[in-house]
């Protein structure tokens, strides 16, 4: 900083300058801290509220009161309830219910396979647009970019018909393939691929490497950080997807076909919505909060591990879900 090089008329002017600076800094930190608390409050509330039993939650008022509760009220019963496959209804009978374990499994299947499809299509297409020359390349790419302007609802309307037409309702195919390609990821990867110097390509050609060989031996290894970012963002997007699954897979197979197995096709977000109205959570806010916590926690773990990739990828995009 330039402070040490500044000159003051006398000692008191220097002191005043320092004092003003300190006051400024204090206000700065105060402002930022207040906003940081605003950002953190929902998370803290969620963690605390999910860990107390129902009666304690009823008495729960502020965080201050929470510390007085003591550890005897801490419980994992809320979590046990949402992962249980059965519950006791008000008639005392044990009834089967869809557990969050099922939603987790569904979501992991969809997230992993749709990410795999998306990454493969994006890498191959980006390679064609970045490295290869063919007729109509610029026109096709402009067409792709133009679709980014169009609201997704326009596609959803027809995709919903296609889904019913192909008998894909309540199947993994509808959840995986309909979003099998992402124009943004193609665009993002193409940018990275284009930064790879041309000389490498010529050198590879001299060595007799084919175009496809060059993609796998040179381009993919160099662009690995970008591909990682795409992988992570795509996984997170699948985890948070709500609108499309809500239309095509909000329920179980029984609803769609005459299949006997009661196989719930919901993903976590839709499962969470259905938990809110389920019997086990009726009037039990702590259980609802535990459901929210269970959906959010894997994202946090993901964020902590892959912070670098996520923040870099997001700062270049505007996508979510």
């Amino acid at each position: 900083m330039a402070e040490h090089a500044m000159y003051f008329a006398d000692e008191s002017a220097r002191r005043r300058y320092i004092a003003i600076n300190i006051v400024k800094k204090v206000f700065l930190y105060l402002f930022i801290t207040i906003f940081a608390l605003f950002m953190l409050t929902p998370f803290l509330f969620m963690i605390f509220a999910s860990l107390v039993d129902a009666t304690a939650f009823e008495q729960f008022t502020l965080f201050a009161d929470f510390s007085k509760l003591g550890f005897e009220n801490w419980t994992f019963s809320n979590y046990q309830a949402i992962f249980a496959k059965t519950y006791i209804n008000n008639l005392g009978k044990e009834v089967a219910r869809s557990s969050f374990a099922q939603y987790f499994l569904n979501t992991i299947i969809v997230a992993v396979s749709s990410t795999a499809v998306t990454v493969v299509t994006a890498v191959l297409a980006a390679f064609a647009f970045a490295r290869l020359e063919f007729k109509g390349k610029n026109l096709l790419f402009a067409l792709l970019l133009a679709t980014m302007m169009i609201p997704g609802e326009m596609m959803v309307i027809t995709n919903y018909q296609t889904t019913i037409q192909l008998d894909w309702k309540f199947t993994f195919s509808a959840l995986i393939f309909v979003h099998g390609v992402s124009v943004f990821y193609i665009y993002y990867l193409r940018q990275t691929f284009q930064q790879i110097p041309n000389e490498l390509y010529l050198a590879a050609k001299v060595d007799g490497v084919t175009d496809i060989g060059y993609l796998f031996k040179v381009m993919i290894p160099i662009a690995m950080p970008t591909i990682m970012t795409i992988l992570i963002l795509s996984l997170m997007g699948a985890w948070n997807s709500f609108i499309w699954p809500n239309l095509v897979a909000n329920g179980n197979w029984l609803q769609g076909k005459g299949v006997k197995t009661n196989y719930d096709m919901r993903l976590v977000s839709n499962g969470l919505m259905s938990l809110f109205s389920s019997d086990i959570a009726k009037g039990q806010d702590a259980i609802k909060i535990a459901g929210s916590m269970v959906v959010t926690a894997p994202l946090f773990v993901f964020f902590i591990v892959f912070r670098k990739y996520i923040m870099r990828g997001v700062s270049r995009s505007g996508i979510k879900g």
Partner: peptide
């Protein structure tokens, strides 16, 4: 801290 809300589930936090 300021980035945290980005990596959350809209419905879960809506409930909160």
């Amino acid at each position: 801290i300021f980035f945290l809300p980005y990596v959350t589930n809209t419905i879960a936090l809506g409930l909160v």
